[in-house]
């Protein structure tokens, strides 16, 4: 696996690569979202996967079979944790009960990093369990940055935030999503999980050029890519995660690689879950596109 390559102490980059593009120290390779349907196959079979991402909330339980599998798989593979309930943009107070559970799970799993979304999920003590878009203005920016700093201080580590798919925008926005996102990362010190499919979906829904989004994000802030499928209804696109990655998203991934270089990439499938082998084929596609775009890892 690429992760085993020696690291240049001066630059923090791996030195053994045939690629012309330097490989950053944090590059994990090509991964997959771990789903319960695949637990047994992951443990039984030797598979070509470098790492797994787990949804944090799914394992914030006291015990039982899923957690048993999780720990068994963790012994075999690097993991990152991905949350959906941080609600970093909500005007409700930060939920420290949730953060404590997140910290306990972090101590258990020792993930490479922790991520959540640049959004809000609820307010006034009601949770929509959806990734709702924020208005992109100074008030929201100050609010989010201050909360990211609080979360990072509580967890004792930087977090990654991910761009969400959106279907509406607000009149009181004063900047683009990528300007907002970039500024959150710059001011709060958080890092970026760039969901390539979400950029495509939002670009279609709001009629912007996805390349502008990529160009607007600072190169040194991006640590992970998500790739996923969507449902195209013609006039609009919904981020359903129940299909294979679509061709335009693969094309955008190639452009993202050209801008950001070697970034840990994974396939995120949440519904209509196919056999593991089908998702591994998509991971292979991502690996092949990266190799074609950036050169061989050696």
């Amino acid at each position: 696996m690429a992760n085993n390559q020696p690291i240049d102490n001066m630059t923090g980059e791996r030195s053994l690569s045939l690629s012309n593009v330097p490989v950053p120290e944090h590059f994990l390779g090509f991964g997959l979202g771990l789903r319960t349907e695949h637990f047994q196959d992951v443990l039984n079979d030797k598979i070509n996967i470098d790492w797994f991402e787990v949804v944090s909330e799914n394992f914030m339980v006291d015990g039982g079979k899923p957690k048993h599998y999780l720990h068994s798989i963790r012994e075999l593979y690097p993991m990152v944790m991905h949350g959906v309930s941080l609600s970093i943009g909500s005007t409700d107070p930060l939920n420290f009960d949730y953060l404590r559970k997140l910290k306990v799970l972090t101590n258990e799993l020792q993930p490479e990093w922790i991520s959540d979304h640049l959004c809000w999920t609820g307010a006034h003590e009601k949770n929509s369990h959806d990734l709702l878009p924020l208005p992109y203005n100074d008030e929201a920016l100050n609010h989010v940055c201050q909360r990211v700093e609080q979360v990072q201080e509580f967890l004792g580590r930087p977090i990654l935030l991910e761009n969400v798919s959106s279907y509406l925008s607000y009149k009181n926005s004063t900047m683009t999503e990528w300007q907002f996102f970039n500024e959150v990362a710059r001011r709060s010190g958080c890092e970026i999980l760039l969901d390539i499919n979400n950029i495509y979906v939002s670009a279609r829904n709001h009629d912007f050029n996805p390349q502008d989004y990529l160009n607007g994000i600072a190169k040194d802030k991006v640590k992970q890519f998500h790739l996923a499928g969507h449902s195209d209804y013609g006039d609009y696109v919904i981020d359903t995660h129940d299909h294979p990655v679509a061709d335009p998203v693969w094309q955008l991934y190639e452009k993202a690689l050209q801008r950001f270089g070697w970034i840990s990439t994974m396939i995120e499938r949440d519904d209509n879950i196919p056999p593991l082998v089908e998702l591994l084929a998509e991971v292979d596609t991502a690996r092949n596109i990266a190799t074609k775009t950036l050169g061989s890892l050696g």
Binding site: T91, A123, P135, S169, K171, S173
Partner: peptide
């Protein structure tokens, strides 16, 4: 240029959306 000026607070916006 798509966005017109609106002073709606984040708190009120989230309340209305919920």
């Amino acid at each position: 240029s798509k966005y017109s000026v609106s002073k709606l607070s984040l708190h009120s916006l989230q309340q209305q959306m919920m």
